[in-house]
Amino acid sequence: MEFFLTSLLNGLSYGLLLFMLSSGLTLIFSMMGVLNFAHASFYMLGAYFAYQISSAIGFWPALVIAPLVLGLAGALLERYGLRTVHKSGHVAELLFTVGVALLVEEIVPLIWGRMAVKYAIPRELDFTLFSLFSTSFPAYRGFMLLVSVGMMVLLYVVLTRSRIGLIIQAALTHPEMVGALGHNVPRVFMLVFGVGTALAGLAGVIGGNAFVTEPSMAAAVGSIVFVIAVVGGLGSLEGAFIASLVLGIIQTFSVALDYSLSDLFAGSEVALLHDEALRSLFSIRISQMAPMIPYLVMVLMLIFRPQGLMGKRE
């Protein structure tokens, strides 16, 4: 029981973390149709900016300033970069973001060095929030969950309940009409891109000290955020939320499962089991596979339901 509850809690918190990482990506894709490959780079920059700012004036100002700076940078990138290549179609946009990602990956070690920087959790949040049986739940983890849920709620409300959200949604499907009604459509897209990168930056501010702030951190999360976006359904925030939670919980629980294919057939005389070449395959345990499960789910999803859990686009 203790193990089950702890694992459930761990799974939930990991899932919410995944959502935090991928929400900006999903937002930009759902509202602009741009698959932002530089998303993880903005996450990394968020962590480094937060490190720099927090070593000067503290963590709390950094929590606000770093995402704002990155949002501004993202907006400028959209205005002077993405908008120019937009004319050449989606492939050009994609290549542009890949280029930005490569650039950031090379520039970061030039400025901050290849070694991890000392970006630590703030003292105010470095305590145990509560204890479940004998397992303690750190306050910083609680803080991460709170931010992640906050992100979800805020995005949902803004997009579906506010005026600006309606304009954004309308601009996606009927840009000419929205323009004719007197709204500046390009500026709407600039805003969306800026908010998307700001969200990535916020995830970086929070993830950077929970994990390690180093030049390879972008590459480390780069693949998993795409898994979330694909499984959730490209362009669906609700889908991304559900996918994050489901994958987080599945992965956490599968670590605990020490079963392999050979256990399944144990006792029965299946000839295959005695095949030397296959034995190593059969003895792979589920726990060993755990970190690969999200990728497996993505492949299956692409085969059987290409639009993802709740995707609206093909």
């Binding site: 990991y14 397992t135 629980f253 670590v255």
Partner: peptide
């Protein structure tokens, strides 16, 4: 576990 792929070790810790 796979090298450099695990972000969250808490399930291993629980185990």
């Amino acid at each position: 576990h796979p090298t450099g792929k695990v972000k969250d070790f808490s399930p291993y810790v629980a185990k």
